[in-house]
Amino acid sequence: MARPVKKSNRPCDDPRLDYKDLETLSKYLTPQGQIHARRRTGYCSKCQRELKQAIKRARHMGLLPFVGS
């Protein structure tokens, strides 16, 4: 039996996740600063990759923590 196709929590044709949008990105971080897993975000793999890239860019610029306090 084929696994049911999981629908993304986020419409994939939305504008790209931006590293400057810290309000949105910080929702997907644990208190320790880890990125939430896909089962938690409910994103499709493409959106999750976009989220990962945006968070990592924000971390590089010192906008988001690598390790939370």
Partner: peptide, 15 residues
């Protein structure tokens, strides 16, 4: 704004 972690001994920076 204040930085999420210290960069070059600075805790704040202008973007």
């Amino acid at each position: 704004r204040s930085l999420a972690y210290t960069i070059k001994k600075r805790n704040r920076g202008t973007f």
